[in-house]
Design a protein around this nucleic acid. Structure first.
Lengths: 73, 73
DNA sequence: ATGTGACTTTAAGTCCGTG
DNA sequence: TCACGGACTTAAAGTCACA
């Protein structure tokens, strides 16, 4: 898993925060108002998420959008 | 102009950094490998930019992606 | 040098399912 | 509970002419 692209790094960050909250992908999907398969894809780094969904995910995770980009560049 | 949505805030941040570099939208577009009018749309907050283009823009501006989200939630 | 509406092509995002 | 696929629908990507 080459995690050196923005989609993978974003997905890994989402997964890490979600697991730290102790919730499932389905629960996060519900909190975001997004589809469960979409969250799965995002965490695996296969989706090119756009701004409004980044905001929804950040809100659902209780962080600010920039926290989802807090990986070593 | 509700600047309290993520597209507008992202666009404003891009514009601020671009202007601090003293370059035009056309020059930024060239550095990004994106279209001039697309950059214009982004800065005005009318485009729902996705991860890969966020990465291109950050690279062109010489910042990390999270710097483009450095606004108060 | 930039804003904007219109447009076509591509990919985002949904929803059905399976092991 | 999640990865993954197929088949969709909607929206983003990308381009243009003109103000």
């Amino acid at each position: 898993m080459a995690a050196n692209n923005i989609k993978s790094m974003f997905g890994n960050t989402v997964r890490t925060i979600r697991l730290s909250m102790g919730i499932s992908q389905e629960e996060l999907a519900f909190l975001c108002g997004l589809h469960r398969t979409y969250i799965s894809d995002i965490e695996r780094g296969t989706r090119n998420v756009s701004l409004e969904n980044i905001a929804k995910i950040a809100r659902a995770l209780g962080v600010s959008p920039k926290d989802l980009f807090d990986f070593p560049n």
